[in-house]
Amino acid sequence: MSTDNGEYVLRIRRGSSAALMMALVAFAAGCGGSGSDAAPTKPPAGDSAAKETGAGGAAVDESGSDTVFRTEERFKQALPDPTSMAGWTPRGASAEIEEAPEAAANCGPDADWYCARIARGEADYEAVGEEAQFDLTAFADKGAAQDACRKQKAWSAKYTKAQTPPIPGVDSYAYYRNAGGLDGLNLYMCTGTVVAQVLLEGEGSTLDPDTAHALGQLFAARIHKAAAAS
Protein backbone atom coordinates (compact mmCIF):
# COMPACT_ATOMS: atom_id res chain seq x y z
CA MET A 1 0.00 0.00 0.00
CA SER A 2 1.05 3.66 -0.33
CA THR A 3 1.37 5.69 2.84
CA ASP A 4 0.88 9.44 3.31
CA ASN A 5 4.61 10.11 3.00
CA GLY A 6 4.87 8.15 -0.25
CA GLU A 7 6.38 4.96 1.16
CA TYR A 8 5.27 1.68 -0.37
CA VAL A 9 4.75 -1.09 2.17
CA LEU A 10 4.03 -4.78 1.80
CA ARG A 11 1.67 -5.87 4.55
CA ILE A 12 1.37 -9.49 5.66
CA ARG A 13 -1.75 -11.12 7.07
CA ARG A 14 -1.80 -14.62 8.53
CA GLY A 15 -4.89 -16.75 8.06
CA SER A 16 -8.15 -14.93 8.74
CA SER A 17 -6.62 -12.84 11.50
CA ALA A 18 -7.12 -9.08 11.23
CA ALA A 19 -3.68 -8.42 12.65
CA LEU A 20 -1.24 -7.01 10.10
CA MET A 21 2.54 -7.01 10.21
CA MET A 22 4.77 -4.71 8.22
CA ALA A 23 7.32 -6.40 6.02
CA LEU A 24 11.01 -5.88 6.62
CA VAL A 25 11.60 -2.82 4.48
CA ALA A 26 9.43 0.03 3.10
CA PHE A 27 10.13 1.18 -0.43
CA ALA A 28 11.35 4.79 -0.73
CA ALA A 29 9.07 7.56 -2.00
CA GLY A 30 11.41 8.23 -4.90
CA CYS A 31 10.70 4.79 -6.38
CA GLY A 32 7.36 5.75 -7.87
CA GLY A 33 5.09 6.02 -4.83
CA SER A 34 1.88 8.04 -4.75
CA GLY A 35 3.80 11.11 -3.63
CA SER A 36 5.42 11.44 -7.06
CA ASP A 37 4.32 14.39 -9.21
CA ALA A 38 5.13 12.61 -12.45
CA ALA A 39 2.14 11.67 -14.58
CA PRO A 40 1.69 7.88 -14.65
CA THR A 41 2.41 6.55 -18.10
CA LYS A 42 2.81 2.95 -19.17
CA PRO A 43 6.41 1.89 -19.89
CA PRO A 44 7.32 0.75 -23.41
CA ALA A 45 6.60 -2.94 -23.76
CA GLY A 46 9.54 -5.01 -22.59
CA ASP A 47 11.62 -2.25 -20.96
CA SER A 48 11.10 -3.26 -17.34
CA ALA A 49 11.02 -6.93 -18.28
CA ALA A 50 14.41 -6.66 -19.95
CA LYS A 51 15.90 -5.23 -16.75
CA GLU A 52 14.54 -8.16 -14.76
CA THR A 53 15.42 -10.92 -17.22
CA GLY A 54 18.85 -9.76 -18.33
CA ALA A 55 20.44 -9.96 -21.77
CA GLY A 56 18.18 -11.29 -24.48
CA GLY A 57 15.03 -10.70 -22.42
CA ALA A 58 14.52 -14.41 -21.70
CA ALA A 59 13.69 -15.45 -18.16
CA VAL A 60 15.76 -18.21 -16.57
CA ASP A 61 13.79 -21.45 -16.59
CA GLU A 62 13.13 -22.29 -12.96
CA SER A 63 9.89 -24.16 -13.69
CA GLY A 64 11.19 -27.21 -11.86
CA SER A 65 11.89 -25.34 -8.62
CA ASP A 66 10.73 -26.97 -5.38
CA THR A 67 10.91 -23.66 -3.49
CA VAL A 68 7.88 -23.08 -1.28
CA PHE A 69 6.66 -19.47 -1.07
CA ARG A 70 5.50 -19.08 2.50
CA THR A 71 7.51 -16.24 4.01
CA GLU A 72 7.19 -12.48 3.98
CA GLU A 73 10.59 -12.07 2.36
CA ARG A 74 9.83 -14.55 -0.44
CA PHE A 75 6.70 -12.63 -1.45
CA LYS A 76 8.50 -9.31 -1.16
CA GLN A 77 11.15 -10.58 -3.58
CA ALA A 78 8.63 -12.02 -6.05
CA LEU A 79 6.04 -9.23 -6.28
CA PRO A 80 6.99 -6.31 -8.57
CA ASP A 81 8.18 -3.26 -6.63
CA PRO A 82 7.81 0.42 -7.65
CA THR A 83 11.35 0.50 -9.05
CA SER A 84 10.61 -2.33 -11.49
CA MET A 85 7.26 -0.72 -12.38
CA ALA A 86 8.56 2.65 -13.56
CA GLY A 87 5.72 4.65 -15.12
CA TRP A 88 3.03 3.03 -12.97
CA THR A 89 1.65 4.39 -9.68
CA PRO A 90 1.63 1.83 -6.81
CA ARG A 91 -1.75 1.36 -5.12
CA GLY A 92 -1.18 -1.47 -2.65
CA ALA A 93 0.69 -4.65 -1.77
CA SER A 94 -0.20 -7.44 0.63
CA ALA A 95 0.24 -11.11 1.34
CA GLU A 96 -1.72 -13.65 3.35
CA ILE A 97 -0.19 -16.75 4.89
CA GLU A 98 -2.68 -19.57 5.54
CA GLU A 99 -2.28 -20.92 9.07
CA ALA A 100 -4.20 -24.12 8.31
CA PRO A 101 -4.14 -24.83 4.56
CA GLU A 102 -6.76 -27.13 3.06
CA ALA A 103 -5.57 -30.55 1.94
CA ALA A 104 -5.66 -30.94 -1.85
CA ALA A 105 -7.74 -34.12 -1.44
CA ASN A 106 -10.51 -32.02 0.14
CA CYS A 107 -10.73 -29.59 -2.79
CA GLY A 108 -13.57 -29.79 -5.25
CA PRO A 109 -14.42 -28.34 -8.66
CA ASP A 110 -12.27 -26.38 -11.07
CA ALA A 111 -13.66 -23.03 -9.93
CA ASP A 112 -12.02 -23.66 -6.55
CA TRP A 113 -8.58 -24.25 -8.09
CA TYR A 114 -6.94 -22.17 -5.33
CA CYS A 115 -8.49 -24.25 -2.52
CA ALA A 116 -5.22 -25.88 -1.37
CA ARG A 117 -3.13 -22.70 -1.40
CA ILE A 118 -0.76 -22.10 1.51
CA ALA A 119 -0.26 -18.38 0.82
CA ARG A 120 -1.28 -15.61 -1.56
CA GLY A 121 0.15 -12.18 -2.33
CA GLU A 122 -0.71 -9.28 -4.60
CA ALA A 123 0.62 -5.92 -5.73
CA ASP A 124 -1.52 -3.31 -7.50
CA TYR A 125 -0.48 -0.51 -9.86
CA GLU A 126 -2.25 2.10 -11.96
CA ALA A 127 -1.50 3.95 -15.18
CA VAL A 128 -3.71 6.29 -17.20
CA GLY A 129 -6.95 4.43 -17.88
CA GLU A 130 -5.66 1.04 -16.76
CA GLU A 131 -4.83 -0.95 -13.65
CA ALA A 132 -2.35 -3.81 -13.33
CA GLN A 133 -2.68 -6.38 -10.56
CA PHE A 134 -0.09 -9.05 -9.82
CA ASP A 135 -1.30 -12.11 -7.90
CA LEU A 136 0.87 -14.94 -6.60
CA THR A 137 -0.81 -18.08 -5.26
CA ALA A 138 1.56 -20.50 -3.51
CA PHE A 139 1.14 -24.23 -2.89
CA ALA A 140 2.91 -26.79 -0.70
CA ASP A 141 4.54 -28.59 -3.64
CA LYS A 142 4.74 -28.73 -7.44
CA GLY A 143 2.05 -31.40 -7.68
CA ALA A 144 -0.52 -29.24 -5.93
CA ALA A 145 0.45 -26.23 -8.03
CA GLN A 146 0.18 -28.20 -11.29
CA ASP A 147 -3.24 -29.51 -10.25
CA ALA A 148 -4.40 -25.97 -9.49
CA CYS A 149 -3.07 -24.75 -12.82
CA ARG A 150 -4.87 -27.53 -14.69
CA LYS A 151 -8.16 -26.71 -12.93
CA GLN A 152 -7.86 -22.97 -13.55
CA LYS A 153 -7.03 -23.49 -17.23
CA ALA A 154 -10.04 -25.79 -17.67
CA TRP A 155 -12.33 -23.34 -15.86
CA SER A 156 -11.18 -20.39 -17.99
CA ALA A 157 -11.60 -22.21 -21.32
CA LYS A 158 -15.10 -20.71 -21.73
CA TYR A 159 -13.65 -17.20 -22.10
CA THR A 160 -12.19 -15.57 -25.21
CA LYS A 161 -8.51 -16.37 -25.65
CA ALA A 162 -6.11 -13.42 -25.66
CA GLN A 163 -3.30 -13.45 -28.23
CA THR A 164 -0.50 -12.92 -25.72
CA PRO A 165 2.89 -14.42 -26.66
CA PRO A 166 4.21 -17.24 -24.44
CA ILE A 167 6.28 -16.23 -21.41
CA PRO A 168 9.73 -17.89 -21.45
CA GLY A 169 10.30 -20.40 -18.66
CA VAL A 170 6.66 -20.85 -17.63
CA ASP A 171 3.42 -22.45 -18.78
CA SER A 172 1.35 -19.38 -19.69
CA TYR A 173 -2.08 -18.63 -21.17
CA ALA A 174 -4.32 -15.56 -21.35
CA TYR A 175 -7.99 -14.70 -21.81
CA TYR A 176 -10.43 -11.78 -21.67
CA ARG A 177 -13.14 -11.55 -19.06
CA ASN A 178 -15.61 -8.84 -18.00
CA ALA A 179 -16.32 -8.69 -14.26
CA GLY A 180 -17.96 -5.98 -12.20
CA GLY A 181 -18.46 -3.82 -15.29
CA LEU A 182 -14.73 -3.73 -16.02
CA ASP A 183 -12.99 -5.36 -18.96
CA GLY A 184 -10.01 -7.49 -18.05
CA LEU A 185 -7.13 -9.33 -19.68
CA ASN A 186 -5.98 -12.22 -17.49
CA LEU A 187 -2.52 -13.70 -18.02
CA TYR A 188 -1.79 -16.83 -15.96
CA MET A 189 1.63 -18.41 -15.46
CA CYS A 190 2.37 -21.76 -13.83
CA THR A 191 5.88 -22.44 -12.57
CA GLY A 192 7.32 -24.53 -9.75
CA THR A 193 5.07 -24.37 -6.69
CA VAL A 194 3.14 -21.23 -7.67
CA VAL A 195 0.43 -19.97 -9.99
CA ALA A 196 0.88 -16.31 -10.95
CA GLN A 197 -1.56 -13.89 -12.56
CA VAL A 198 -1.20 -10.53 -14.27
CA LEU A 199 -4.57 -8.79 -14.58
CA LEU A 200 -4.98 -5.70 -16.73
CA GLU A 201 -8.30 -4.04 -16.03
CA GLY A 202 -10.11 -0.87 -17.06
CA GLU A 203 -13.39 0.48 -18.31
CA GLY A 204 -12.99 0.87 -22.05
CA SER A 205 -9.28 0.00 -21.77
CA THR A 206 -7.43 -1.30 -24.82
CA LEU A 207 -5.93 -4.09 -22.68
CA ASP A 208 -2.90 -4.44 -24.90
CA PRO A 209 -1.58 -8.05 -25.03
CA ASP A 210 1.95 -6.67 -25.49
CA THR A 211 1.67 -4.81 -22.18
CA ALA A 212 0.46 -7.99 -20.47
CA HIS A 213 3.34 -9.91 -22.03
CA ALA A 214 5.95 -7.39 -20.86
CA LEU A 215 4.54 -7.38 -17.31
CA GLY A 216 4.35 -11.18 -17.37
CA GLN A 217 8.03 -11.40 -18.28
CA LEU A 218 8.90 -9.04 -15.44
CA PHE A 219 6.81 -11.02 -12.94
CA ALA A 220 8.14 -14.43 -14.05
CA ALA A 221 11.73 -13.24 -13.74
CA ARG A 222 11.14 -11.95 -10.20
CA ILE A 223 9.42 -15.22 -9.20
CA HIS A 224 12.33 -17.26 -10.52
CA LYS A 225 14.85 -15.01 -8.80
CA ALA A 226 12.94 -15.30 -5.51
CA ALA A 227 12.80 -19.09 -5.87
CA ALA A 228 16.56 -19.24 -6.40
CA ALA A 229 17.33 -16.99 -3.40
CA SER A 230 18.74 -18.73 -0.34
Rank of each mutant, 00 (worst) to 15 (best):
residue 130 E to Q: 14
residue 163 Q to D: 12
residue 168 P to G: 05
residue 147 D to N: 06
residue 170 V to K: 00
residue 166 P to W: 09
residue 144 A to Y: 02
residue 148 A to K: 05
residue 165 P to R: 13
residue 135 D to F: 11
residue 156 S to V: 13
residue 135 D to P: 02
residue 161 K to H: 15
residue 156 S to D: 09
residue 154 A to G: 10
residue 162 A to K: 12
residue 152 Q to W: 11
residue 153 K to Q: 07
residue 154 A to V: 10
residue 163 Q to L: 12
residue 144 A to W: 00
residue 156 S to I: 09
residue 174 A to I: 04
residue 130 E to L: 15
residue 155 W to N: 12
residue 146 Q to R: 01
residue 138 A to S: 14
residue 151 K to P: 01
residue 140 A to H: 07
residue 161 K to L: 14
residue 173 Y to G: 10
residue 163 Q to I: 13
residue 154 A to L: 11
residue 167 I to S: 04
residue 161 K to G: 14
residue 148 A to C: 04
residue 139 F to H: 05
residue 133 Q to C: 07
residue 146 Q to F: 06
residue 145 A to N: 03
residue 138 A to Q: 10
residue 148 A to Q: 02
residue 163 Q to M: 13
residue 174 A to L: 03
residue 157 A to E: 15
residue 160 T to N: 13
residue 174 A to T: 04
residue 153 K to I: 06
residue 138 A to I: 08
residue 169 G to Y: 02
residue 167 I to M: 05
residue 132 A to I: 02
residue 158 K to V: 15
residue 140 A to L: 10
residue 168 P to M: 01
residue 137 T to I: 14
residue 159 Y to C: 04
residue 172 S to L: 03
residue 167 I to Y: 01
residue 155 W to F: 14
residue 145 A to H: 02
residue 153 K to V: 02
residue 161 K to I: 13
residue 132 A to M: 02
residue 152 Q to R: 13
residue 168 P to I: 00
residue 137 T to F: 10
residue 151 K to N: 07
residue 169 G to E: 01
residue 163 Q to F: 06
residue 161 K to T: 15
residue 153 K to R: 13
residue 170 V to W: 03
residue 169 G to W: 07
residue 167 I to A: 07
residue 155 W to K: 10
residue 171 D to L: 06
residue 130 E to Y: 09
residue 157 A to N: 13
residue 134 F to E: 04
residue 141 D to M: 06
residue 133 Q to H: 13
residue 139 F to A: 00
residue 153 K to L: 04
residue 171 D to G: 08
residue 172 S to I: 03
residue 144 A to G: 11
residue 169 G to S: 09
residue 137 T to D: 12
residue 161 K to Q: 15
residue 156 S to R: 11
residue 142 K to E: 03
residue 149 C to Y: 11
residue 151 K to H: 01
residue 174 A to F: 00
residue 141 D to I: 00
residue 168 P to Q: 05
residue 135 D to R: 07
residue 158 K to C: 14
residue 141 D to V: 05
residue 139 F to I: 03
residue 152 Q to A: 12
residue 164 T to S: 07
residue 152 Q to H: 10
residue 130 E to R: 09
residue 157 A to C: 12
residue 156 S to W: 12
residue 150 R to Q: 08
residue 163 Q to K: 14
residue 145 A to W: 00
residue 148 A to I: 07
residue 153 K to H: 00
residue 143 G to I: 01
residue 161 K to A: 15
residue 154 A to P: 05
residue 155 W to E: 12
residue 133 Q to S: 14
residue 140 A to K: 05
residue 152 Q to F: 11
residue 161 K to V: 15
residue 170 V to F: 01
residue 131 E to T: 13
residue 168 P to D: 08
residue 136 L to D: 02
residue 147 D to P: 03
residue 172 S to P: 04
residue 170 V to R: 01
residue 155 W to C: 06
residue 163 Q to N: 14
residue 142 K to L: 09
residue 173 Y to P: 05
residue 141 D to L: 10
residue 164 T to Y: 05
residue 165 P to K: 13
residue 159 Y to K: 09
residue 174 A to N: 02
residue 160 T to Y: 10
residue 140 A to P: 02
residue 133 Q to N: 13
residue 170 V to S: 05
residue 149 C to K: 01
residue 135 D to S: 10
residue 152 Q to L: 14
